[in-house]
């Protein structure tokens, strides 16, 4: 089980801020494929990965990052702080 978090328009498009996901995905990219296959709202949110950023256990990561031992994965658009 892994906690998956969504922020900003990713959260709005999917319709929830976080969920627990039962997954055997070895990488972030595999997790994205599993989520995309669920429902249209997930497919829409993950349509263009170049528009998304990912964090694994609260550290920015790449989509090919391993999920071995990961507790939390977050998906969000490029950040706009400051």
């Amino acid at each position: 089980m892994i906690d998956v978090l969504y922020f900003a328009w990713v959260r709005e498009r999917i319709g929830l801020p976080r969920e627990r996901v039962e997954t055997g995905a070895a990488t972030v990219a595999e997790l994205v494929e599993e989520l995309r296959a669920r429902e249209d709202r997930y497919a829409a949110a993950f349509a263009d990965l170049s528009a998304l950023r990912v964090a694994v256990d609260q550290e920015l990561a790449d989509f090919d990052a391993s999920l071995d031992g990961a507790r939390e994965v977050a998906f969000f658009p490029p950040m706009t702080g400051g």
């Binding site: 900003a8 969000f76 702080g81 400051g82």
Partner: peptide, 10 residues
């Protein structure tokens, strides 16, 4: 802070 701190403005 602008690009690496996880804030999003609407």
């Amino acid at each position: 802070l602008k690009s690496r701190a996880p804030f999003w403005k609407k």
